[in-house]
Simulated assay, not measured.
Amino acid sequence: MPPANPWAGEVALILDGTAHTCKLTLGALAELEASLQADTLVALVGRFEAGGFSTRDVLALIVAGLRGGGWRGSARDLLCAEIEGGPVRAAEAAAELLARAFATP
C-alpha cells in the first residue's frame, strides 16, 4: 500500500499490523454526521480544537476515515483491534483527519 497522501486528505493508520489509508470523503462525512446524531461537524471540530473531544468522537472519526479509505468494517470491529501507537495515535489520526478534510491546499 502506498503511503498516505496528506495533500489528498489521507492519514495512515496501522490496525492489527496492517496499514490502512483513512480519508474523510463526502460519504464518510455523512456517515460521521449520522453516527454523531445531534452533534454537528462544526461542534466536533471545536471540541478537537479545545481539547475537549471524547473517545466516542475519536472512534467515530477513525471509523469514518477508514470507511472513506475503503475499509468495510464497523465500530464494533475496532473494539478488539490493536491500533499501532494506541489511544494517543488514534486521537492524533482523528485530529489529522479533521484538519486535512477541511484544509485548503
Rank of each mutant, 00 (worst) to 15 (best):
M1A: 13
N5T: 07
P6Y: 01
A8S: 13
E10M: 07
V11M: 00
A12S: 14
L13E: 00
G17A: 10
T18W: 03
H20E: 08
T21A: 06
L24S: 02
L29Q: 14
L32G: 00
L32Q: 06
A34W: 10
Q37K: 15
D39A: 12
T40R: 05
T40W: 10
L41V: 15
V42G: 00
L44R: 01
L44I: 11
G46P: 02
G46C: 03
R47S: 07
F48Q: 03
E49D: 14
G51A: 09
F53D: 02
S54T: 15
T55H: 10
R56S: 08
R56E: 12
D57I: 13
L59D: 08
A60R: 09
A60V: 03
I62N: 09
R67L: 11
G68K: 01
G70A: 06
W71C: 10
R72W: 12
G73P: 05
G73Y: 02
S74P: 05
R76M: 05
C80L: 12
A81Y: 09
E84Q: 15
G85T: 15
G86W: 05
R89M: 08
E92R: 13
A93K: 02
A94E: 03
A94Q: 05
A95G: 13
A95H: 11
E96H: 07
E96W: 00
L98S: 02
A99M: 10
A101L: 04
P105D: 14
